[in-house]
Design a protein around this nucleic acid. Structure first.
Lengths: 137, 137
DNA sequence: TATTGTTATACTCTATAACTATA
DNA sequence: TATAGTTATAGAGTATAACAATA
């Protein structure tokens, strides 16, 4: 069983997840929260729903995630002037600082995760995953 | 975000999981159950606990998994003659048939999953995952 | 009538604690 | 007392349904 691709992928995901969460813990973040911050850093979404879609999660899941990030002072929510049903979500100053630190910590976790691989093999791994996940030719 | 290794691994796992479950569904199995059957096919465990350890799951989780597989007629449980606290778990005749079919279906799911990759890239992907998961040098 | 954020609820997967029977 | 299987229970994480505000 331990040779099957599904097994290898699942356990690789679990191991990197554990390493990343450990690296992010001192910042008061976990991997899911860093994902939200990264989405916000790469262009302010016009609604919580749009942010959720970019992450592939449900809008009801996004609510609790943003609640936690707002409580930590990393994001702000304000009704959109154009459509007051929507919330414009933005990083605060602390949020920008946190995401920069988080990326650095997560990069170190990746490095540890890839430790046994030669650099070009690590590069190929990333490229192959991009191909199968993003369906690139 | 969609470039991060953690994101790529998670979504690759999710996609192969979905393809595999779809391929196994006609057999009345899912990926986890196939994993159990594969462990049993690769050497009869001396106890449910040992089987659980080989899969990296808890012995309490194994109980429900084996309940379902026994109900489907794919495995049998009998107390060990040497230590009647232990259950010796074995594949039935139907279990052997099912695991053979399941491996074939799962292989096809893998093939579809890897569809966009050149064959040598698929081979490298598997090797790289083995290295990081099994901590081979 | 449709959509956004929200809440309440339920479902899946998993683990911990407690029970039983054996040792 | 210690261990294997089992059961009851609880904790994540997620999704569906219903509701209030707004369009």
């Amino acid at each position: 069983m331990s040779g099957r691709l599904a097994y290898l992928l699942k356990h690789a995901t679990m191991r990197l997840h554990a390493l990343t969460d450990a690296a992010l813990a001192p910042l008061g973040l976990d991997g899911r929260e860093m994902g939200v911050l990264l989405v916000l850093a790469n262009g302010e979404p016009t609604s919580q729903q749009e942010a959720a879609q970019r992450l592939g999660i449900d809008r009801t899941t996004m609510v609790a995630l943003l609640d936690a990030l707002a409580h930590k002072g990393f994001i702000s929510r304000r009704p959109s002037p154009e459509d007051r049903r929507r919330n414009v979500v933005a990083l605060t100053e602390e949020g920008h600082t946190a995401v920069a630190r988080a990326v650095k910590a997560a990069d170190e976790a990746e490095h540890e995760f890839l430790g046994n691989l030669p650099p070009d093999a690590a590069h190929h791994l990333r490229a192959a995953l991009r191909t199968v996940v993003l369906r690139e030719p």
